[in-house]
Amino acid sequence: MSGALGGQIRRELLLLARSRTDVLNPLVFLFLTVLLFALALDGRPENLRAHAAGVLWALVLLTNMLALDGMFRRDYDDGSLEQMFLITQSPVAPVLGKLLVQWLATGALITLCSPLLGLALNLPAKVLPMLFLAFLAGSPAVSFIGAIGASVTVGIRRSGAILGLLVLPMLIPVLIFGVSVVNRALDGDPPGPAIYWLAALSVASIMAAPFAVSAGLKVSLEQ
């Protein structure tokens, strides 16, 4: 099984390296929407700071929707998804590999950029480590839960709106805990249980999502 996992990860990383714009586009989109919000909130520093956590988390969720929409599309179109199911009836290990790389390309990258995004929205420097930590703890849950939605909608043309409708309600806990961590840091408080909740949601979704995603992919392939 580790061979299947490692092989899938290698393949996905290779594909990633060959389609760098696909990785960068959502990130550019995220920066652009942050710019929109900075302008919409009049650019006043105290105004930005007060709304930064909520704006950032909501935009990160939306950016993830964009990235998730295409995550199985190419493999679905060229048939490699079907090949995955020819190897084994329930390809949990390769699916896990796929999801991990998907997180690397979106969640991890966004986490790395998050201090910069926080600065752009005028968060004080002392909050930035906690912002980074919140995204590190919470972003796997976004990718992994989101992938469940992506797996059942891969066969649908123009699935973007539906994907959001399916997945965003389930990501509300991540949003709530994530915003709370950052806002508490802004008030100078320790993050409290919220950060553990984020991590717990991520761990639970990493364990459960590969099974749900392979069930969802199977359904999509049979139509």
């Binding site: 066969g155 399916l166 749900a212 359904v219």
Partner: peptide
């Protein structure tokens, strides 16, 4: 709403059924 939309979006009845089932359980 999500379940309803998903059912409407997938034309093949059997796939729609099982996609909705996956989603309902996740929900």
């Amino acid at each position: 709403f999500g379940l309803h939309a998903l059912r409407q979006a997938i034309p093949a009845a059997e796939s729609a059924a099982r996609a909705c089932a996956v989603l309902a359980i996740a929900g």
